[in-house]
Amino acid sequence: MPELKSFPTSSAAFFGGVRHALTSVFFPVMGGTYIGIGALAHDFGLSALWLTLSTLFVWAGPAQVILISGIGAGAALIEVAIAVTLSGIRLFPMVMALLPLLRTRETRTTDLILPAHFTSVSMWIESLRVLPGIAHAQRVAFCNGLAATYMGIAATFGLVGFYLAAGLPPLFAAALLFITPISFLISTARSAVTMLDRLALVLGLVGGTVLAALQVEFDLLWAGVGGGTIAYLVSRFRKKPVQADV
């Protein structure tokens, strides 16, 4: 069994996490994504403070995009809340998979509240990859340093996007607003490795457009729950159980 990396103190472990975040591939990805989200928040008339708090508290790109575009466009709040919670379900198995890596006999549940809140796709992918090589007792501190840095990057670049969108000529502001749809489309397609996920992606794109064009009430929920359920049923009954990665 290989030697686990150990830090002299828990604050050294925290800063080990900080350093890891600053040099990881997710730095530019997160910067670009949050420039787009910041521009989106500006476009929908939300304040810079609101944007920053949404990054710190919601801390999930898809949920923030749903929230900002939903309340910005004046959708029913209950619809937005349901769409946000449906997009957040994926956090539940992610937290469950992460915690066994962090927990030792001495760990109190209260120590795990922060890592649970910090759980989001990029932090989770990096943690699952890196934590197994870190000494058990220092994993919580390392993980907190990693995630707090990602969050700081996201909040900072969100403000960059917000103020760029406010100051740039319309063509370039449009290009900033375009970051969110194209980057989320491509990253969703990239992680959609199963037939089920790909079908859900296509049905969501088509359903979202058609139902919004027909001005159906709760268009997003119908497109999401309907499209996702159809995709699920089709792939379930078309062949043997689907293989899912992540």
């Binding site: 476009d43 995009v65 449906l86 379900i89 996920d197 859900a200 969501g204 499209g227 996702g228 995709a231």
Partner: peptide, 24 residues
């Protein structure tokens, strides 16, 4: 739930492109 979350996000993406607002 993954399929539903994927479809919801895809719906949001489609709406942001097709029914764009502001400078877009």
């Amino acid at each position: 739930s993954r399929a539903v979350a994927t479809a919801i996000l895809a719906g949001v993406v489609a709406k942001l492109i097709v029914f764009a607002s502001g400078s877009l």
